[in-house]
Amino acid sequence: MDGVSYQRFPKVKIRELKDEYAKFELRDTDASMANALRRVMIAEVPTIAIDLVEIEVNSSVLNDEFIAHRLGLIPLTSSRAMSMRFSRDCDACDGDGQCEYCSVEFHLRAKCMSDQTLDVTSKDLVSSDHTVQPVDVGGFENSDRGIIIVKLRRGQELKLRAIARKGIGKDHAKWSPAATVTFMYEPEIHINEEMMESLTLEEKQSFVDSSPTRVFDIDANTHQVVVVDREAYTYDDEVLKKAEAMGKPGLVEIYAKEDSFIFSVESTGAIKASELVLNAIEVLKHKLDAVTLSDDTVEADDQFGELGAHMRGG
């Protein structure tokens, strides 16, 4: 290892931050970092989800597995998940997953007594821990209702006990806190002004219209083609094809800036979008620590074999 350092200092700029949605810029790093962050957010940030269901009575139209599966997919508020234990390595309960450190118990009882169909929703789930609750899906049309689990007709009954545990999206998608996590390269759009001025207004308009998304527009006063929203560009190449078809290749040049990314993060509601990003960075750090810790110890050989020796030797 010579003294050359390739360390970079990535910058983050938050554009928009809501409870369930975040949009931010990540600069001065490369695609491997951005993608690592994306993958960790989807698959490795822990949340809590129902994992074990004991059904006492089920006379509904859905079978037991079906209901257990639906219960698992209900997002639960999981701010506590990072500090909880995985039930497989919990000492307090020998890993059977029924203690306060690694599990939360839920009960559900519903019986339809009227002639009207009864909706059993996530609101009917009674939690043993007030910090872990089914996510409030407010803000939508039926904000007073939860997520429907099953519908019951007169006389049908559902009675069950469920245990929620900490887990990660890699094991089952129900533990994934991310609805969508995506990033795109920031596009850089250059208009060849000289060539653009050689077009008639009509040609300019047809050029502007050729983009499926609204990237360009014509300035009402100067009749110049201007970039209104470069991030609306979807790398579809439609405008480039149009320029070529008009016999003006090089009219616009579009590059992807390979060290700037625009992230959009949408959470399921289990944790806030901001928590999702921060927890992902935390998880990523832990993963890297596993490598650096054993860098100069004998453990490296156990963990990484030849690779460990290679890392120490340089």
């Binding site: 698959a43 890699k170 969508t180 995506t182 990033f183």
Partner: peptide, 14 residues
């Protein structure tokens, strides 16, 4: 394939 290994749209994340 796990979800994370699938291609995704840069705009919508689908």
């Amino acid at each position: 394939w796990p979800d994370i290994d699938m291609p995704f749209s840069g705009i919508t994340g689908m």
